[in-house]
């Protein structure tokens, strides 16, 4: 029942083979070893597993591998910045103290990334709306919203 799909994962073309009924979350974490994407609830409520699929932020725990098509483009936290060079959103999350325990951080950054790609100058309320599906239990969200707001007004390219 394994299925092979030609995906673009973090900018690289990849032929990925997995069980059609596997969750995309598990394919990312187990097959592709991209463990930056986290599982918090497994039912689409917490947003810790947020990734970007063809430009839209999605809960990777709610999509089955078999639902993907050849040519689908997935971006995870590993695809936007890393050890050598942080993405500006990652820089602002660090600087503003927007990450505490860090478990929601990758999903939160991906939701913010999807927002800024579409809407580079969001209002305060648009930011709140955009990450309303991502639960954080540590920060009270204030510093997360500040980090996204500062990144948006810094004129850096997302």
């Amino acid at each position: 029942m394994g299925k092979s799909i030609a995906l673009i994962v973090n900018g690289k073309r990849k032929k990925v083979k997995a069980h059609a009924a596997s969750r995309v979350l598990d394919v990312l974490r187990e097959t592709l070893k991209l463990t930056g994407t986290k599982e918090g609830c497994g039912e689409g409520e917490c947003g810790a597993c947020s990734v970007i699929l063809n430009g839209e932020v999605v809960n990777s725990c709610l999509i089955l591998f078999g639902q993907l098509n050849d040519g689908d483009d997935i971006t995870t936290i590993e695809g936007i910045g890393g050890k050598k060079k942080l993405h500006p959103l990652q820089e602002y999350f660090l600087e503003c103290g927007a990450s505490q325990c860090g478990i929601c951080t990758p999903g939160m950054i991906m939701a913010a990334y999807a927002l800024l790609k579409k809407n580079p100058r969001p209002t305060h309320d648009e930011i709140r709306q955009a990450v309303a599906g991502n639960l954080c239990r540590c920060t009270g969200y204030a510093k997360i919203i500040e980090a996204i707001e500062r990144c948006a007004t810094s004129n850096v390219k997302i």
């Binding site: 991209l34 930056g36 986290k38 936290i77 660090l94 600087e95 103290g97 990450s99 505490q100 860090g102």
Partner: peptide, 21 residues
């Protein structure tokens, strides 16, 4: 001082290893 958290880079890049990782 507002020192940046020392475990911050691992967390914002998704490289920090939680038990399930």
């Amino acid at each position: 001082q507002n020192a940046v958290r020392l475990d911050g880079r691992e967390k914002v890049t998704g490289r920090a290893l939680y038990v399930d990782d």
